Amino acid sequence: MTSPAATPPAAAQVQPTFTGVMRGEWIKLLALRSTWWALASTAGVITLVALAAAMSLNAMADDPALAPGIEQMHGAEVIAGGFHFGILTIAVLGALLITGEYATGMIRSTFAAVPSRIPVLRASRTARAHATQIARSNATPTTRTTSVAGAIWYRLT
């Protein structure tokens, strides 16, 4: 007696979720060494520019002609002075991620998994924004500490 052949199950139609697309973008983002270098250089640039600004304020305070201009400045201007240069390193990070994805051909597998480009672009933008926010939030306390340390060091020398 022969039994009828079992029919294979139909292929399931899987719709990619934003969580899944976001997970894939995080993996691609954090797997590259250039991401870590760009984020570290962002924090370093922000910190070093804040240190230079703090030391220049001390030099300005010693000069009687420039001292009145310091009274109008806020501490936030000194601390946040490096964020403009930090934006450049984040722009480099974005360019490295996009060109790297096209150069390696990873973009083809990304769009094969998620045919609609909008969720991929949103997830990629969100992942880069979160990584940038982490780098910025790590640099802010460092710039405050470095600015104060630079001012103290300048006064001691």
Rank of each mutant, 00 (worst) to 15 (best):
M1T: 13
P4Y: 14
A6N: 15
T7P: 12
A10N: 11
Q13K: 10
V14H: 10
V14L: 13
Q15A: 14
Q15E: 09
P16L: 11
P16N: 13
T17P: 14
T17E: 14
F18C: 13
T19L: 15
G24Q: 12
E25M: 10
W26A: 09
K28V: 01
K28G: 11
K28D: 06
L29Q: 15
L32Q: 13
L32N: 15
L32V: 06
S34Y: 11
W36H: 14
W36G: 14
W37E: 08
A40G: 15
S41Q: 08
T42S: 12
G44V: 09
G44L: 15
G44C: 10
G44T: 06
V45W: 04
T47P: 04
L48D: 01
L48I: 13
V49A: 13
V49Y: 07
A50K: 13
A52G: 11
A53C: 09
M55D: 08
S56P: 00
S56D: 11
L57M: 15
N58I: 05
N58L: 14
A61C: 03
D62R: 15
D63P: 00
D63L: 06
D63K: 02
P64W: 04
P64F: 05
A65Q: 07
A67W: 03
A67S: 06
A67K: 12
P68N: 03
G69S: 03
I70P: 02
I70K: 00
Q72S: 10
F83A: 08
F83H: 08
L88N: 09
I90V: 15
I90W: 04
A91S: 11
A91L: 13
V92F: 12
G94W: 00
A95P: 02
L96N: 04
L97W: 03
I98Y: 06
G100I: 04
T104Y: 04
T104K: 10
M106F: 04
I107T: 07
S109I: 02
T110M: 12
F111C: 01
F111H: 07
A113Q: 05
A113D: 01
A113Y: 02
P115C: 07
P115A: 07
I118G: 09
L121G: 07
S124N: 11
S124C: 00
R125H: 02
T126I: 07
T126M: 08
A127Q: 01
R128L: 11
A129R: 04
H130G: 09
H130F: 13
H130K: 04
A131H: 05
A131E: 04
T132N: 08
T132I: 08
Q133T: 09
A135G: 06
A135I: 08
N138A: 10
A139F: 03
P141S: 04
P141D: 01
T142W: 06
T143K: 05
R144A: 05
T145Q: 06
T146F: 02
T146C: 02
S147G: 13
S147Y: 00
V148N: 02
A149V: 09
A149W: 01
G150C: 08
A151G: 13
A151T: 08
Y154P: 00
Y154A: 10
R155P: 00
R155K: 05
T157S: 00
T157F: 00
